[in-house]
Write a protein that binds this DNA or RNA. Structure first.
Length: 737
RNA sequence: GCUGCUGUAGCUCAGUGGUAGAGCACUUCCUUGGUAAGGAAGAGGUCGUGGGUUCAAGCCCCACCAGCAGCUCCA
């Protein structure tokens, strides 16, 4: 006899070999019917799983009220969807079908593409399968037998997955539902009838195993709930969230616009948006002055040479606007040099390279036809020679050079002599030049330079999205040059600054991500020791702050690890806002120095930080956060004066003037609308306060104040109203709730 | 960049091969109204761009541009 421990603290004896379902039945028939799955010592398992033969195992039965049960349901519904698709689209290859936070997806490769028009019949098939209410039956097979099983079913992707990853396990688990068998870890709901409501949401492409060099599959997104009511509530919630979308509100409220003619991904700030941005910038500027920062200004372009030195130009070659060269031969030579320097590439890298060359509009004769890496490099070198000849450029070193590496080096020597500029992708190299312009003593450190610096990055077309992912944006950038002893203190101060900024704006719903380097990757610069130091310092600080965080490998910048503050937009996508980054590498690359107390030369450490991140992205998130209804201190229009009729127009204009003289952003709506219509317009424009004035107010020198949310607040004197505004603005008061 | 979808008036959208529509917004006139829409008239469109099919294209086909959802990327 063994026993299990239930959530209420009671313990219950079970016979060895009994399942979770047996346990549920022994507790009550109702519970047995309602049970979806079971949590055994923290792990979610099938209801049919055998309970461990031990004393005091913690067991919790899950019903449709538990969030973990919903995840199980969705995973099972993914199987049902896959089964329906396989029935309707013969010859489908199944990949992965996991549950997500708000639903699930299944990646499928179908010989006949699935289209959105097919959703109704897939849903119909699923409804039929759910009506059958067949059980999910688990069984296990040793790896080689399991491999044979999926092979015989013609599931090549599953075979691949077993060969690549799962072969290290002794056995594989499967789930059977009628004729449908799928390789799966589980757990699953007891039977299909548990799915109360579901809906296919969208269709998208996804790469096999998330690898862009592998084949692209079709991903079907869907969601499922235990009841129709829950599904309806979820769909309503999505509709509500869409109304907060900054792209829609930005248009409605005239905050910003994007013109394909001006350029995709380039934000045009309209007066109202610009007003908000200006206030945010001033807010931060004031804060930075208090914290010992020095404002600086740097230009929008910089010499290529500087970005070669920093590493930004070669490292992000395909994510930049094309470099600006004077010499007509330089752009093609630059591209050809880049290709030669890359050397022999494997298939995946070669595909990326070909795409990059195509995008840069250079056609290398013989390149596409070449079958080996060596032939491609030879074609590239040959073409470079022709370009040089065409322009009458004598480059004996290039002619003598043997091999792509040497050829690339000789071309680079020539390129470095050419005048060339880059739209700046980062502010740090410019700030570094400002640091270097003066001899620095340890007494000067930390040197804190700050700038609202606009940078340009050529993001992939598919990435552009409103204000959150753009090709030109202004970072509230700052660089600190510190001694190694000052690193922790300054990091701390800047994390504190980011938190202060977010708190002031009421953005409390964020997560903190520690970006570490991916072990074993070659995409980072600098020594292992520096990286180890930097990563350890960041982790130590965050731990001391007792701030919830997650350390994620592969999320570091190429020059150092970082702490990012990540928020979600209205449709659940995550965006990095504030960031604090630690950098031992750029100081080395630019040979930065200061004179220490020991009268010797030392190297400073750099901290890159941006509390807002980018003004564009921050603004986008802020629009969604406030649903366009900005607090009084940020609102582009703080008060609208509404005369009851044109008889009160003169008084309304007097009020407008007095408020404006007091520094309030105010307009008066003098028109032929009735007062109700004027209130409606002001409310839709999300103006925080309306001052309704008629004959009564004109006689008593009052204004009838109306809040955009709570409505009529009654008549008060103009002085009292101005005092109220003054307090709200000074305190940067946020809307309640 | 890849997969799928979308592009018609300033905005939101209807329009299944035969003379381009609605609501809101805009302009003018009437109305002077007390807390979320007063009335009337008017103006406004190379149907994203370029090709093709057709007697005839907003609608069908191709390419490009832009947007949306997702994937990959993100200093």
């Amino acid at each position: 006899m063994s026993s299990v421990c239930l959530p209420d603290g009671s313990s219950r004896a079970i016979t060895p070999g009994s399942t979770a379902r047996d346990l549920a039945e022994s507790i009550g028939k109702k519970l047995a019917q309602a049970a979806i799955a079971v949590v055994v010592d923290g792990t979610v398992c099938d209801l049919s799983s055998t309970l461990p033969d031990a004393e005091g195992t913690k067991v919790r039965l899950l019903t449709d009220r538990d969030p973990e049960a919903l995840e199980v349901l969705r995973h099972s519904c993914a199987h049902i969807m896959a089964r329906a698709v396989v029935r309707l689209f013969p010859g489908c290859q199944l990949a992965f079908g996991p549950a997500l936070e708000n639903g699930f997806y299944y990646d499928i490769e179908s010989p006949t593409p699935i289209r959105e028009e097919d959703f109704p019949r897939i849903e119909e098939e699923m409804r039929a399968l759910i009506a059958l209410g067949e059980p999910f039956e688990r069984f296990e097979r040793p790896v080689d037998q399991g491999r044979d099983l999926v092979r015989d079913m013609g599931q090549k992707l599953k075979v691949e997955h077993i060969d690549e990853d799962l072969c290290r396990f002794p056995s594989l688990s499967f789930y059977r539902q009628g004729e449908f068998v799928d390789l799966c870890r589980g757990p699953h709901i007891p039977h299909a009838g548990k799915v109360g409501a579901f809906k296919l949401m969208s269709l998208a492409g996804a790469y096999w195993k998330g690898d862009a060099s592998r084949q692209q599959l079709q991903r079907l997104y869907a969601t499922a709930f235990f009841s129709q009511k829950d599904l309806d509530a979820y769909l309503r919630q999505i509709e509500e969230a869409k109304k907060r979308d900054h792209r829609i509100l930005g248009k409605q409220l005239h905050l910003f616009t994007i013109s394909p003619l001006a350029g995709p991904g380039l934000i045009l700030w309209m007066p109202k948006g610009a007003m908000i941005r200006g206030i945010l910038e001033q807010f931060l500027r004031d804060e930075l002055m208090r914290r010992g920062y020095h404002p600086v200004y740097t230009p929008h372009v910089g010499k290529l040479e500087m970005y070669r030195m920093s590493g930004h130009f070669p490292y992000y070659r395909d994510a930049q606007f094309p470099p600006l060269y004077h010499h007509p031969a330089a752009p093609p030579i630059d591209l050809l040099q880049y290709r030669l320097a890359a050397g022999a590439l494997d298939e995946a890298r070669e595909r990326e390279m070909s795409l990059f060359l195509t995008q840069a509009s250079i056609v290398i004769p013989g390149y596409a036809e070449a079958t080996t890496p060596a032939d491609r490099l030879a074609a590239t070198a040959k073409f470079a020679g022709e370009v040089l000849d065409l322009h009458g450029i004598q480059l004996p070193d290039f002619v003598r050079a043997v091999g792509a590496e040497e050829q690339a080096r000789s071309l680079l020597v020539w390129l470095e002599k050419q005048e060339g500029y880059l739209l700046k992708p980062m502010n740090c190299p410019h700030h570094i030049q400002i640091y270097k312009a003066v001899q620095r003593s340890y007494r000067d450190l930390p040197v804190r330079l700050a700038e609202f610096g606009t940078v340009y990055r050529y993001e992939q077309t598919g990435e552009l999205s409103g204000m959150t992912r753009v090709r030109g944006f202004t970072q509230d950038d700052g660089h600190l040059f510190v001694t190694s002893e000052q690193v922790e203190e300054e990091l701390l101060a800047n994390i504190e600054l980011v938190r202060f900024v977010l708190k002031t704006l009421g953005l409390g719903d964020y997560r903190v991500r520690i970006g570490l380097r991916a072990k074993g990757s070659d995409k980072y610069v600098g020594s292992n020791d520096d990286w180890d130091n930097a990563e350890a310092a960041l982790l130590r600080i965050v731990k001391n702050l007792e701030m919830p965080h997650s350390a994620e490998e592969g999320e570091a910048a190429f020059y150092g690890p970082k702490i990012d503050f990540v928020v979600r937009d209205c449709i659940g996508r995550e965006w990095q806002l504030g960031t604090v980054q630690l950098d031992y590498n750029l100081p080395k690359r630019f040979d930065l120095e200061y004179i220490g107390a020991d009268n010797r030369v030392h190297r400073p450490v750099m901290i890159h930080r941006a509390p807002f991140g980018s003004m564009e992205r921050f603004m986008g998130i802020l629009i969604e956060h406030f649903a366009g209804a900005f607090p009084v201190w940020l609102a582009p229009e703080q008060v609208r004066v509404l005369p009851v009729s044109e008889k009160a127009a003169d008084y309304a204009k007097q009020i407008e003037l007095k408020l404006r003289e007091a520094g309030i952003r105010v307009t008066a709506d003098i028109g032929s609308d009735k007062i109700g219509a004027r209130i409606r317009t002001a409310t839709l424009d999300k103006v925080p306060y309306m001052a309704v004035v008629g004959e009564k107010e004109a006689q008593s020198g009052q204004v009838s104040v109306r809040d955009r949310l709570t409505g009529d607040l009654g008549a008060i004197s103009l002085e009292a109203f101005m005092a109220r505004l003054e307090v709200e603005i000074r305190e940067r008061r946020l809307p309640a709730g």
